[in-house]
Amino acid sequence: MDVHQLNRAGLFWITALRVLIGWHFLYEGMVKLFNPNWSSVGYLLDSEGIFKGIFYRIAASESLLAVADFLNVWGLIAIGLALILGLVEKPALWGGIALLSLYYLSHPPFPGLKYDLPSEGSYLVVNKVLIELVTLIVLLFFPTSQRIGLCRLIFKLKNSD
């Protein structure tokens, strides 16, 4: 199914979904940016599962940790803004998918794995990170920024006579 085949309501809600996820990303990034003490180290060290070792390595290396912190803060902000405004939608979606995959892999809600970080709900294999991740994949199939978003204007400007 193509995004052009969506009716008005469908287009509205798919766009709303894109914007709301953007909002969530943007806020997560801003919170970290404005907290001088924030670092991904605690989250990384709380990792479990088969990729635990990789996340521990990142936490142990000062330079890798700095990269992880930078990519987290500015990645979240950039993806958030892009999704809200409807700009560079595809790269933003892929970026979001990559970040969420890392979050999911570092804290997979599998039986037997325990985390210090409190969880606000009850999850088994599926958690909100995974759902948000799959939602971003769905959005890849329904790009809306060329219809509602700055991309539409840019596209038009490029192609206008």
Binding site: G86, I148, G149, R152, L153, K156, N159, S160, D161
Partner: peptide
């Protein structure tokens, strides 16, 4: 409207439709 090459009022409205969300944020 997507097929037309000129920027229409509709393009501007739809293009900027989510900007207020950034403002709300």
């Amino acid at each position: 409207e997507e097929k037309s090459k000129k920027i229409t009022r509709r393009d501007i409205i739809k293009g900027l439709a989510t900007v207020p969300v950034a403002g709300a944020f």
